[in-house]
Every structure is written in structure tokens, then in C-alpha cells.
Design a protein around this nucleic acid. Structure first.
Lengths: 212, 212, 212, 212
DNA sequence: CATGAATGAGTCTTCATTCAT
DNA sequence: AATGAATGAAGACTCATTCAT
């Protein structure tokens, strides 16, 4: 018999990722408790035991699903924002538009929904998301705002609250999308929502000459 | 096979409410799948079988939990809003403040979280919430905005998007509260958040003499 | 308040019988395990607890159902047969026809079916039926046959076997009726079956001049 | 939550048969409702969950028990009978003797009893038995008799009734065996019963030179 | 006496996880 | 390494029976 073909080797190497992808699908559709490991395995095209070669427990697999979506999608944005120095308006527009785009083209939205849904069952995951995503994001934006306030470019007021003022409609849109659109709700056009929201809100948030 | 030591008082009147209350607690803490009927019964101070005297299945009990919080908390607000005719600003402030207060003094927030969390598992409940709560609420606010737009009192733009601009921070605050505060997040002061948000946003949303 | 009306007193006095009747119906339809005490009570038009005023347990009620049909239907027949002295043929015809008639006009057939069905679960009832009904009946007929054999009126052979030769089609007809007719089987005409069977069998069983 | 001490050998081939065998035993002893899946599993030497690998529900397992005994035991006999062309007497003797032997050496008798016992609970099984076993068997024998009647070899009369005349004692014997012998009844010698019965009955049933 | 709310033991069934092959 | 048969803990739900009213 010949040695394993490259094709087969390739499959072997992508297995964990295949499993994570399948797991995201099933977790999204059924929730953590409703997802059956056997179905995840089947959707990934592997045997029932295979997931356990890479993930000790169902919880670990869930954690991997949640973790794997953060690094590539969230971290770059945070770094971009943290490094920002110029005017706020274009940054806010860039960030929210990028976020909206990411939500529409990656599983980020489904994972956000998953994290919210299963936070009771997995406080650890809620904590990780809070520490690595939300708190960081809120903190970054709040810090930007605070600096701008000191420069007199942003309205006074709690910077964290201001941060929510900016990003909340996007978050609500995402949650609405994932929660109610599947049962027949009329979807929001996220891009249009973001644009209209910022057009409405930024004039009241940014003071005078701030609008570059 | 009979039981050896039953001891109970007849309480047909209050039992169902007791059970629903206990169920809300346990569902909130553990999620639907993680909640054990026996624990719900125990917390309600009744026997394992008692909940089944009033609710045929765990799902029905869950539905009752979700339903029981809507009628008294949501419907009055919607009616108030629908009947409104005068200036928008005081109405928006009244509604959001009332909502914020309701969230802080009733289980509404936990139920919202529950509905979002379990929407995959119970599309029926998601649908009911959408039809009876969200769509109605969004529709009511959007209708108010539309009328005001025709009177030239509100900025042009999609009324549903404007509605999200107004209420999103409150929703996000609630979800944040229920999802991340239990794992250590710094809570938002909902009242302050709402006030600051409206102070920031309303000037850009409302035209003419309404502004400020 | 007046004293209980006669009508109400009458009801009270027939209650146990009402309950037994309802129990027979439900046991017949659902089997012992499938019969719910609450349904029996409901069909008898009494409260859920009422049957327990007359029958300590479900088993006791079942025993009462089975017992109550024997006395009036079986015993007289056995006594008649035991007291018989004349020619066998008319007796056999009389007994089987009477049995057939009883099966068609009383719950006897359903009880027979019930006893057979639940004999595993209630060996005690199987024993009672065996001792008080079957063994007595078989013994009585076998004794008649044996005496007739000694007079040279009946073919040689084991009298118990001869007894089965005579009554089996009736029993099989009853069981068939209760078991398979409800699922669509073509019913037997028990009277015709009995007559044809005896016409066929008796000439071979009874010797020469026996045929009165 | 995992199991701490599993210890098993792979036996996919024989497992289902083992389980069906154990199930037949337990169903026979306790009836359908009284049989516990765990006991069936234990008797088959497998874990509590193993039966569900092969049979989705207790009912399906019951159906398998009933089904598995028909094919090998009943169908060959029916085909033999249907193909028959010669004299009736040897065929009837062969069939009944073969049936008697089958009942004594296979679980057929217990299954017949089971089908009768549980027919209320499982009308579907009663129907299957009726359609595939009883109606076929009765039909086959009745058809044989009818043809013989046209040749003047069998007494006039409804052929189905005649069929009962022939096989009833065997059926009653089987039911008696399964129902009352366990509680102390004196068993019948089925072979002797059949022989004596046919010796008594056939002369009256068959005409012409067949008669003794 | 009669009622029916309440009890709780008992059982089917699911599914994450293990490990012989 | 990979497979999938096997395990067994866990939980929803039923219903005979009790007894406060």
C-alpha cells in the first residue's frame, strides 16, 4: 500500500478546523445543550469519536468555537482603534462600518448570540468574552472619547455611556437578526442603520470644530 | 406505590404563581436545558409532581414564565405610547425612563435575556415575543416618529432605524447587565445611561423648537 | 337542610357497582396497567378518591371486576351440569348454547380476555379463575364424560381432552372476538359456530344408541 | 458526565438477537407494561442503554420479539399447507402435529399468549398478527376445506367454522398452558390431545372413504 | 362522607464519553 | 490514529395513593 495521499494528509490537518466549523453551525442552530456531539461529528464528516481527539469535552469544543472567532475579527479592530490619534468621526464611522461588514460576512454575529445565550451555562466563557472583547472594546472607545473630551471635542458625560450610544444599535441589530429574523421578523439593513444612526447622533456628540 | 409521609396545605390559588416565580429564578440561573423541574419544584416549596398539575410540560412552564411578565409590564406601555399625541421628547423620556425603572424593579430584564437565550430552542416563544412585544413596540414608536416626520418635527430617515437609535442603549444595557455583570462586569447605571443618551441624541433627532 | 333525598341514597348504594362497571370498561379497553384510576372514577361519575372508599387498591378493584362476573354467570351453569343425569347431547348443546348466549349478552367474554391478558401480572387472579372456573368446569364436564364412558355412551379417551374437543371452538371464538375483531377481523357467528361444531363432532364422540 | 468503568466486548452481530431473547423472557414473565428495559438489558448481559442502539423504543423491541418468531415458525407451515393437493386427513394431522411440536420446542406459544395479552395496548401488533398469521392461516385451511367440499370430501358447512373445529383445542391448550399451568394447573399433553381430538373429529368431518 | 390537590417512587429515554479493535 | 459499539448517569414525566378540607 502506498503512503497516505496528500489529499488525505490535507484533510487530517484541517480536521480540527472542520470540526469547529461544524460545531459552530450546530451550536448556533440548537444551542449548547441541544447540540449533539454525534451531529457535529457527522457534519464535519468525521467519526463520532474524532472530536474527542482534539477537544476533551463538549465544553472545550464550545470554548474553541467562541475563541476562534475572536482573534481574527476583533483584535485587529481593537488595535486599530487603540492606535488611533486623529479625528473621531471617521474612526467611529470606520469601526462601525467594519463591524457591520464583519457581522454580515463572518460568523461573528452568531457567536455573539451564542455567548449571550449560553452565558448562564458557561460563566467562564462569558468572563473570557467580557475580559477579552467587551471590556477591551468599551475601554478602548471610552479612552478615545475621554481624550477627546479633554481636547474639548466631545460632549461631557460618562465615556462608557457615550460608547454605548455609538455602538448599541449595531449590537441590537445583530441580536435582532440572530434572534427574531429566523422566526419571521423583518431584517434590518445593518449598513443603512449604522449610517443613519451616526448621522443622527454624531452631531450631538461631537462638539463644534471636531467634525474635521 | 404510595408515599409514606405527605404533608401539604391546599393552596390551589397561589401554587401556580409560586411555581412560575421559582421557575423564572431557575431558568434565569441555569437556562432552560439546565433547569431541573425538581429544583423548580423544590424552590417553590412543592413536590416533584406538583408543577405538572398546572403545566403539562417543562416547555409550557417556560412559556408561562415568559408570558406572565409581558401582560403587566409591556402592554400598558404600548397603549400609553399608541395613544400619545403631544410632543415627542417628553414621551420618549417617559417611555425609556419607565422601561428602565421596570427593568430594575421587575423580572422583565431576566425574561428578555431568557427569550434571547432560548430563542433557538423555542422558536415559538421567539415568535410570540416578536409579534406581541418587539414588533408592536417598534411599530408603535416608528409610527409616532413617522407622524412627527410628516409634521416636520423629526429628522428624515427610516423610522424603524430611528426607533433603534432611541432604545438600543437601554436594551444593550439590560443584556449586558444580565450577561456580563454576573461574571464581574462593572454594571451600567441604567437611569444615567438613558438620560445621557437622550440628552445626546434627541437634539440631533428632533427638529425645530423641540431641540434642547 | 333536608335529609338526603332517596335518589341520592340510591346513588350511594349503587356506587361500588357503578365503579366496578366503569372499571371493567376501562380495564377492557386499556388493560390493567394502562387503566388509570382517575379515568375509572370519571366514567363512574365519582370523584378521584371515591374508588378508594370501596377498594383499597387498583388490584383489589381489578379482582372485584373479575370476581363479580363469575358468580352470576358461571356458577349456575356448573351446578346445572353437575346435577345432570340424562343424555349428554342435549346437555352439551344446552351448555354451549347458554355459554355462547352469555358471552354475547354479558361482559363474560371481556373478563375472560382480561384474565388471560393479565394472568402474568396477577397470578392470584389466574389461580382463582383456574380453581373456581376452569378446573371446576373442566372437572364437571370430564366427570360427566367419564360416567358416560362407563355406560358405553362415549368414545374412549382422556375425558379432559374430550372436554376440550367440545368447548374449544367457543373459547377460541371468544378470544378471537375480543382480540382481533377490534382491529378489523371478520367476526365469527358464535351460535352458528357452536351448532356446526357440535353437529360435526358429537356423532364421532357419542357412541351408537347414545343419541337419545 | 462520563462513566468510570466500562467493560465490554464488541458483539454487534449477536447483540440484537440476545436482546430480543431476553426481552421475550421478560415480556413473557411480566407483560409489556411490567417489563423493565433495565431488566431486559441485564438479562441480555448488556448495559441499560444498549437495547436502544438497536430498538428505538420499548414498543419497537416488543414488536421485534413478536415479529422474530413468526417468520421461521409460521410461514413455512402456511406455504406447505397452501401448496397441498392430496388427501386432507394426513395434511391436517401433519399440520397440527407440527404446530404442537413447534409450540413445545419454540417460543411460539409464549408469543401467541403475548399477542393476545397485549392486543389492547398494541392494536398495531394485533393487526399484524391477524393479517399475517391468523387470517392467512384460517384462510388457507378454509380454502383447502372448501375445495374438498366441492369434491364431496368434506361435510357441508362454513369452512371457517370447520377450520376452528380442527385447530381450536390446540390453541386452547396453548393458552391454557401459558396462562394457568404457571399457577398450578395440570398441563395438557398437547400431542395426545391433538391425536385424540383428530381421531374423534375427522370421521365426522371427512366424508366418503376417508372415514376411518 | 366525599373531594381533589398534593405527593413521590418508578421508568423510559438521551447522549457525552470511553476504549476495544 | 480512527472508529463506532457500548456504557450509565441524569432527568422529564406518570399515576397510584393519601389526607386536609
Amino acid at each position: 500500500m502506498p503512503s497516505p495521499s496528500p489529499r488525505w494528509r490535507r484533510q487530517k490537518e484541517t480536521r480540527p478546523a472542520d470540526i469547529v466549523r461544524a460545531a459552530l453551525d450546530v451550536f448556533s442552530e440548537k444551542g449548547f445543550a441541544g447540540a449533539r456531539m454525534e451531529e457535529i461529528a457527522a457534519r464535519a464528516g468525521v467519526s463520532k469519536g474524532a472530536p474527542y481527539l482534539y477537544f476533551p469535552t463538549k465544553e472545550d469544543l464550545f470554548a474553541a468555537v467562541v475563541r476562534d472567532v475572536v482573534q481574527p475579527n476583533i483584535d485587529p479592530m481593537l488595535q486599530m482603534a487603540a492606535a488611533h490619534n486623529g479625528a473621531l468621526e471617521p474612526l467611529f464611522r470606520a469601526i462601525t462600518e467594519h463591524l457591520g461588514h464583519t457581522v454580515e460576512t463572518t460568523p461573528l454575529g452568531r457567536v455573539v448570540k451564542l455567548v449571550i445565550s449560553e452565558s448562564q451555562t458557561f460563566p467562564e466563557i462569558a468572563r473570557i468574552w467580557h475580559d477579552n472583547v467587551l471590556d477591551k472594546a468599551l475601554g478602548t472607545v471610552a479612552a478615545l472619547i475621554e481624550r477627546a473630551q479633554q481636547r474639548g471635542e466631545v460632549r461631557p458625560g460618562d465615556p462608557r455611556n457615550h460608547a454605548l450610544t455609538i455602538v448599541s444599535p449595531l449590537l441590537v441589530g445583530v441580536i435582532f437578526q440572530e434572534t427574531f429574523v429566523p422566526v419571521g421578523a423583518k431584517p434590518f439593513d445593518l449598513s443603512a442603520l449604522i449610517k443613519q444612526h451616526l448621522d443622527t447622533v454624531l452631531p450631538g456628540l461631537l462638539l463644534e470644530k471636531t467634525t474635521q
